[in-house]
Design a protein around this nucleic acid. Sequence first.
DNA 1: CACAAATAGCACTATATTCGTACTGTTTTA
DNA 2: TAAAACAGTACGAATATAGTGCTATTTGTG
Lengths: 158, 158
Amino acid sequence: MVRLNKLTDYAVVILAEMAQAGGVTTASALAARTGIPGPTVAKLLKILAQRGLTLALRGRAGGYGLSRAPTAINVAEIIEAIEGPVAVAACVEGALENCEFEPVCAMNGHWNRVNEVIRRALTGVTLADMVDAETPAFGFPRPPAKGRERGLGETPAI
Amino acid sequence: MVRLNKLTDYAVVILAEMAQAGGVTTASALAARTGIPGPTVAKLLKILAQRGLTLALRGRAGGYGLSRAPTAINVAEIIEAIEGPVAVAACVEGALENCEFEPVCAMNGHWNRVNEVIRRALTGVTLADMVDAETPAFGFPRPPAKGRERGLGETPAI
DNA sequence: CACAAATAGCACTATATTCGTACTGTTTTA
DNA sequence: TAAAACAGTACGAATATAGTGCTATTTGTG
């Protein structure tokens, strides 16, 4: 179904939650808030940190924070961090595999255009778009945006 | 990787081959030309016929033909014929499943926009676009375009 | 009229991918 | 110095997918 895999979906949810929370949040707190299994959250956060989407703080008061503003992180980046390049088929440019039928195939390169359109669409949507608070997350009410304007590092009130 | 599954990819290739061939073609001929395993081709053609994308002719001189002109068949249709509705996540409208986290999720409905953009992109690409003969299929030379310029409807010489 | 060629439909199996978990090591701060 | 949190690796199980096989039905041809 041109479907994202579950882990990618989770990653977006986690980042969205971080965007809403602001500051630094521990993996276990994110797991509790999103309902995603703890170990899975931890695994994803590690990957996201490696890819530079999040910053990890080790030590006793550690946790993870977004490395950039939510408006500066787009969905395509997130997908690519978890799944690798966006590639609807094996034969598109940038895909990690090669299509064995490539020389015989009737559609030499025509998937590329389709792929590009999709990639562009995904690049155009930012994390901020995904959480814009019109419909705030249910069950975790939080003060109006003004109130939570604390800088990074102020920690989450777990 | 926002990946189509293999069967869907095959379906597009098969339809593209049919578009190039025109008229009626047997499942086994299509298998031979595309390199896709025979039984798999047969299976896909049955599904496509059920969904109305191809017409099936039974009996001795039977086979399959496109039900419409290649310009009137778009990629989204093909994907939906094989995989069901285009849905990047379980929570988008039209998806066949329900997301268990839906009420708690931070991104209530925001996948919908992303999904719509992708769907529109796929709807805009026709089968004809996928085969436009700039780079004809290798290994299966066929007469110049002029020669095969018969109108639609004339097609499957049923 | 009988046979052969082709699709229709169903059910089954094996494979591959993906998901989730567990464990051990490293860093940092109270 | 101990506890809390991240880092990395490796593994097992569940799920989805791909592919196969068989039988029935339709239809043209000799």
